[in-house]
Design a binder for these strands. Structure first.
Lengths: 201, 201, 201, 201
DNA sequence: CATGAATGAGGATTCATTCAT
DNA sequence: CATGAATGAATCCTCATTCAT
């Protein structure tokens, strides 16, 4: 009869945020449900009112990550600026999004580990990167049509660019002293310039 | 020297190889000592004659990985070819080394996860990438001195190049259908060209 | 290399016997794996070296019970005495077998509860009683052919006789002060006499 | 008297009926308070407004069962027909009462299990059967006095008759395909005839 | 009265590690 | 050296019960 005082989904988010904080601190493998409950300042059993299992917490964290990825990609697709500029925006957005939310970034390692094909959890991490590659390959296609980049294997180039972004993130995750936000320009410097059509020899 | 020593160390390697195979197949977190023992076709207790603990197996796998990385870097340092050619060799070597030993490659995700600063295990993954960056920055320095690449923040560029390599590996690990060996040339295409000094504005 | 000092199946039997003792004392529902381990004087984990799960212990107890039932029935089938005498032997055997092993008898209640059609465990208790009924119906058939019992619905009579036996056991289980062994003769008195052909019309 | 009283007690009965349905379906051990609440279409906490604990639900179900048993016995005691006819009525009543209310019948197994002497719950199942035995022994006493049954250990015979009834029920519970209602006549056929005084050799 | 969110004790199960043989 | 039986700490998850609304 009484309407829920606390919004169910709000509470769910609180717990997820707590879980992400703990995952970021200790890694998923070392995180106990108890840790999450204590971080969220609730009882152990209450976690199970909102998540089916420990794994479900990681899945939910993945969803949050994937959702944000999709948003960034969507914005890129909807952009009207010249393709290489949109590529630049994409790179900057990805890096700054993660830099703004270091907690979520720091669980990337666990998401990668658990997102492997053979894993029990089905996070479909591969799809996330596949979408990135596709989006970037499209931008390169447009740029090629414009004549601003030279011709070449677009799919592979897209893989390299996605790789450069994620590889920089990886290094930052392993060594947080690296200035991740400062890396956007060098990435563009290297990658975009590497593909720009030369003025001719 | 001691006759047993050879056997002992050979046996240790056998077990480590078995462990790496299982890690690659199931991931470190899901791998039981029992699995390793069965894969190595020895008794469970015997694993402990050669490794102090389950974690020690992952550490040893890391050492093998790190050793190989150091070897590749050493070869690059000792090279006498022009710096950008040596950079090309480095990229090709790294990728082909992992493509040749996919089992070791596939545990990279676990090594990354466990190599984080806060981890219990002390794998010092950060150092590996730091060494890579340093080596590549040196090559870029040489190339800059030669005038073959334009000036710029070498350290950052090195990070991007290391990132591109590792990021491509990451994508391959998440989706083994990606043609990792074919990516060496696109990486060079993008990254080296991106830094090459233009023939003139 | 070393041959097992303790016979694996002997140890299994020890644990099962301990489990049966505890089941008899506390009932299956109230029995913890810990109780069984303590009763068997082994570590909790060791139980799992011999039984897959807590339920498996009850299943194994059921098997022991079912095996003994089958033995008794087999002996009855192989007998050559007149059918009503063999029926008498059967009734006495069943009661004395359980009276001799009160521990196993006392878990009958749990076996019945868990042997219901819908139960998770698949004990197939129904089959045990079906076999009993069939065996007794056969005896009644022989007796009828001989003319020692009057005609009638054999299957139902068999059900009643099995019922009388099990119903007496039930009362004993609920109230151990009842003299279960003394009930064999009254059962025969009532049931066999109830079916015996009258000396005349 | 109090207007609420009626409602309260009616609500209590509703919940008990719901509980019995669930017990019949899943067994007591597997029944959760939540299941009962859902079956009764009320909130989980409301169950506790009417019953002190989960066990109290089983106790209440037992009381319903015991009350009905007492009613049947009372009717038998108050009867004026010849004793063997009243015995026949008793047998028929018991079986048809349970056949008419299969839900309540199906929890008999759990009541037996929980009604053991050592059980936590105090259901006093033993008394129910004790009363049955006493009533039947009384009937046999009357019949003996009349000369319609032969002499013998009345208490034991009563145990056998109660056993036949309950044993038939047991078999039906384990295998619902058995035609429980059809068994009343065979039970009487066997048991009453087994005790009837012979016309003389 | 009614509710269902919150709790945490309880218990099954796993598995790294030890050690007697 | 090699083994694998034994162990029990560790942890996930369930669910009876409570209580604020």
């Amino acid at each position: 009869m009484a309407p829920k005082k606390v919004d169910r989904s709000a509470r769910r988010e609180e717990i997820l945020a707590a879980a992400v904080r703990v995952f970021a601190r200790k890694g998923f493998a070392a995180t106990r449900i108890d840790d999450v409950a204590r971080e969220a300042d609730i009882g152990k059993g209450s976690v199970y009112l909102y998540f089916d299992s420990r794994d479900a917490l990681l899945s939910a964290a993945f969803e949050a990550f994937a959702a944000r990825s999709r948003t960034v990609l969507q914005q890129t697709r909807e952009g009207t600026a010249p393709p290489l500029e949109r590529l630049g925006s994409l790179v900057r957005s990805v890096l700054s999004a993660l830099a703004d939310d270091p907690e979520l970034a720091r669980i990337l390692l666990d998401l990668w580990s658990s997102g492997r094909e053979e894993s029990q959890l089905s996070l479909d991490m591969p799809s996330v990167y596949s979408e990135y590659r596709t989006a970037i390959a499209e931008l390169l296609g447009e740029a090629e049509a414009e004549g601003t980049v030279r011709e070449g294997p677009r799919e592979h180039y897209a893989t390299v660019i996605v790789g450069a972004i994620e590889g920089c993130l990886l290094q930052w995750l392993l060594d947080p002293r690296l200035p991740v936000t400062e890396l956007a320009e060098p990435i563009l410097d290297v990658c975009v310039e590497g593909l720009r059509r030369r003025k001719e020899a």
